[in-house]
Amino acid sequence: MDWIKIIHILCVMGWMTSIFAVPRAIIFWRREYERLGENGPLGDLTFRLYRFSAGLSVIAFLTGLWLAWDWGFPVWVLVKLAAVLALLAHYLFTGRLVRAAQRGEFPYSDRWLRVFNEVSVFGAIAILWLVVVKPF
């Protein structure tokens, strides 16, 4: 079971990196697009990071369910799962932003994207608190 935990933590770390980095990268992608008039290397890198982390999120989710099953789905795990689903919604919306950026559409301001980026930090803190404290 320790290997499942290790794989879970590793994949969560990779997914979280994308959750934190991609919205911020879109800000710089927009600047690059305005300068070049087309998608440049930063856009390609941002898309690849998002796509790669999608696989990590699936592995993290499956290993998390495996661990939860082994633990008998205690209440704190169910609350954590709800928080993870909220972060998943954030991630999927980020994917919509990436697809729009690939078409040269940047519908939100830099400030909006920064706030959107910080929302995920609060979600991650809530999940970490649930894992460490196990309040339920």
Rank of each mutant, 00 (worst) to 15 (best):
L67E: 13
S57Q: 09
I59S: 00
T63H: 12
I125S: 10
Y108V: 06
G72T: 05
T17A: 15
A83F: 11
V132R: 10
L49T: 11
L92Y: 12
F73S: 07
D110A: 06
G72V: 02
R51P: 04
R99A: 14
A124M: 15
F20E: 10
V84N: 03
T17F: 15
M1H: 14
F20D: 08
S109W: 03
G123K: 04
A86R: 02
L113C: 05
C11E: 02
D2L: 14
I59H: 01
R111P: 01
I59R: 00
G37A: 01
G104Q: 06
L81C: 05
I19H: 03
A89R: 10
G72A: 07
R35N: 03
F93V: 07
F20R: 06
V131E: 12
A126S: 10
R51Y: 11
Y108D: 01
G64D: 00
L87C: 12
P74K: 01
F20K: 07
L130N: 01
K80G: 09
W71E: 14
V98S: 06
R111A: 06
M13F: 15
F93E: 10
A60C: 11
V22Y: 09
V115K: 08
L42K: 06
T94I: 09
W69N: 13
V12R: 00
L85P: 06
A25P: 04
L62A: 13
L42Y: 04
W76T: 00
I19W: 09
W112F: 14
G37M: 04
F93D: 11
A101S: 08
T17G: 15
V133G: 01
L128Y: 11
P41L: 11
F136Y: 05
F136Q: 02
A100S: 10
F73H: 09
E105Y: 05
L128E: 12
N39D: 07
D44L: 11
G123M: 06
F106M: 01
V121D: 10
M16C: 15
I125E: 08
K134C: 05
V79T: 04
L81A: 10
G64P: 05
W129M: 11
C11W: 01
R48D: 08
